[in-house]
């Protein structure tokens, strides 16, 4: 019987494994192979250059600027996304009325295409007739150049936080829902404050959900592309490129026929490394005994 089952395992696994190998593992290995070459992607003429592309990354100021932007989104954006997420979690675990309505509202930005959101935010940030500057000028404050060279990245991050916070709050709230209400009620009867309930009950009991949410945020923040690309306008300025955008522009040129597929692939490999590093470190940091309910 067991031998029969074993015989069946391979045929059952084969379709899924082959699809995974062909469409995920294969291209990834090919991408790694391309990263050791100089190649425009237009001809068969691939020149093997070994680790030259990786050496170039080390001294490429645009790469490091884009890396910094990626880190800003990951950490600055991440801190605020989860602060807002926790705020919602703390409030909701207090038995707020119209829970479902609040959840739906905070989730709304997620159902709109990031490109449409980017266009809307650009209008809100406009210097002359933008929403924020209209408010500022109406109270006698000088308008701010939100999308000016010094502010554009922070403005983009504010928008990213706005549309991401709801999604991660919903994940955290799903974790809170698992916690029986009786625990909160007992704590309240004992006189525990909202903060104490959050830190001593909610947080430990949603620890596994939170760690998954943080890792998910990390992966999404590192590979973030669509919103930022659209937010940058017709030709996003270099100062707001993150690594994913830099990789795309080098590989596919956009309006400038750059086409450095080899170098672009090397940058993509570094992004994979950052994702791996984040996931492995995250999992180690968040490893903790899970409380059974």
């Amino acid at each position: 019987m067991r031998t029969g089952r074993k015989k069946l395992t391979i045929p059952y696994l084969l379709p899924a494994v082959s699809l995974y190998l062909i469409f995920f593992v294969g291209p990834a290995i090919y991408g790694l192979w391309i990263s050791f070459h100089e190649w425009s992607g237009f001809t068969d003429d691939m020149k093997f250059v070994g680790l030259k592309n990786y050496g170039k990354i080390l001294v490429d100021p645009i790469y490091w600027q884009s890396f910094l932007n990626m880190m800003l989104i990951l950490f600055v954006g991440g801190i605020f996304v989860f602060l807002i997420g926790f705020l919602f979690t703390a409030l909701m675990s207090q038995g707020v009325a119209a829970k479902k309505a609040i959840r739906a509202i905070i989730f709304f930005p997620q159902i709109i295409a990031p490109i449409a959101l980017a266009v809307v935010w650009n209008y809100l940030y406009r210097f002359d007739i933008g929403f924020f500057n209209s408010i500022l000028t109406s109270i006698g404050v000088n308008p701010i150049n939100w999308t000016g060279p010094n502010n554009i990245m922070m403005s983009a991050i504010i928008s990213i936080i706005w549309y991401s916070a709801g999604f991660y709050a919903i994940i955290l709230l799903a974790g809170v829902d698992k916690i029986p209400n009786t625990i909160f009620e007992a704590a309240r009867v004992e006189g525990a404050s909202t903060f104490k309930i959050f830190t001593n009950i909610t947080l430990p009991l949603i620890w596994d959900v939170m760690s998954i949410a943080i890792i998910l945020w990390g992966i999404n923040a590192i590979r973030l592309f669509d919103f930022l690309f659209a937010f940058g306008g017709a030709e996003p300025p270099t100062r707001m490129w993150n690594t994913a955008m830099y990789q795309f522009i080098l590989g596919f040129g956009q309006r400038t026929p750059i086409y450095q597929l080899g170098y672009s692939s090397a940058i993509a490999v570094t992004m994979v490394m950052v994702v791996l590093l984040f996931v492995v470190t995250g999992r180690k940091l968040f490893k903790r005994e899970v409380y059974e309910l």
């Binding site: 060279p149 300025p237 270099t238 522009i249 040129g253 750059i258």
Partner: peptide, 23 residues
């Protein structure tokens, strides 16, 4: 753009932005 596209995009344009923005 056609002759040195990567120089144009990664060297010239960022510096030119700084010049025209008064930075």
């Amino acid at each position: 753009q056609a002759e040195y596209p990567d120089w144009w995009k990664t060297v010239f344009l960022p510096l030119d932005d700084k010049l025209i923005f008064g930075e």
